[in-house]
Simulated scan of single mutants.
Amino acid sequence: MNILITGGSGFLGARLARTLLAQGSLALAGAPAQPIQRVVLVDRVAPPADLAADARVQPLLGDLGEQLAAGALPLADVQAVFHLAAAVSGECEADFDLGMRSNLDATRQLLEGCRRAGHAPVFVFSSSVAVFGDSPEQRLPEVIEDTTLPTPQNSYGIQKFIGEQLVADYTRKGFVQGRNVRLMTVSVRPGRPNGAASSFLSGMLREPLAGERARCPVAPETAVALSSPGNTVRGIIRASTASSTEWGARTAVNLPALTTTVGEMAQALERVAGKEATALIDWEPDAQIAKIITSWPSRFQPKRAQALGLAADESFEAILRDYVRENPQAVKLAVKG
Rank of each mutant, 00 (worst) to 15 (best):
D286M: 05
A257K: 01
R101I: 07
T278D: 05
W247A: 08
M1K: 06
G10M: 04
R192F: 12
R299C: 09
P35Y: 04
R250E: 14
S155W: 13
T107R: 08
L258S: 04
W247C: 00
L320D: 08
A46W: 08
A223F: 06
A334P: 02
G163V: 02
S198Q: 00
S244G: 15
V224E: 03
A52T: 12
S227E: 06
Q165V: 10
T151S: 15
E212Y: 13
A46F: 12
P74D: 06
R56W: 09
K332Q: 15
A72F: 07
L226I: 03
Q79W: 05
S187K: 03
K303Q: 15
G113V: 01
A312Q: 08
Y156C: 02
A287V: 12
D105W: 11
S102N: 14
G30H: 03
E317R: 05
Q329V: 10
K275Y: 11
N231V: 07
A290E: 08
T185F: 10
R179M: 12
T245L: 09
A49T: 11
A268K: 06
Q159M: 14
V218Q: 02
L73F: 02
D169M: 13
S228Y: 00
R15G: 11
T147P: 04
L209Q: 03
Q37Y: 08
A277Y: 02
F11N: 12
L75V: 04
A197T: 12
S298R: 13
A252T: 02
V188T: 09
S102M: 11
A219H: 03
A249D: 12
A312M: 01
S243V: 02
E317I: 00
L149D: 07
Q138M: 10
W247M: 04
A87K: 06
A197R: 01
S102V: 11
A94R: 14
P150Q: 07
A86S: 15
L201H: 04
T6F: 07
Q109F: 09
A72K: 11
A76S: 12
G113T: 11
I236P: 00
P302Q: 13
L320Q: 11
G203I: 05
L75P: 02
G337K: 14
A196H: 01
V78M: 03
A76W: 06
F96C: 12
L201C: 07
G235C: 04
N254H: 08
A33I: 11
L20G: 10
S244H: 10
E221R: 10
T148S: 11
E66L: 14
L21I: 13
F96V: 13
E246H: 02
L12E: 14
R56E: 12
D43I: 02
E91V: 07
E270W: 08
S244Y: 06
F11C: 09
H119G: 08
V129P: 04
D95N: 14
A69N: 13
T261W: 01
T278W: 03
E137K: 11
K275I: 10
E142R: 10
G62E: 09
A86Y: 01
P152D: 12
A17D: 11
A210C: 10
V331L: 11
S155H: 14
G263P: 01
L64V: 14
L258E: 03
V224M: 00
G71V: 10
Q267G: 09
A219I: 04
A311T: 14
D286Y: 00
G163T: 04
D169L: 10
L205Y: 07
T171A: 12
A312R: 07
G263S: 00
E164V: 00
R56G: 10
N103R: 11
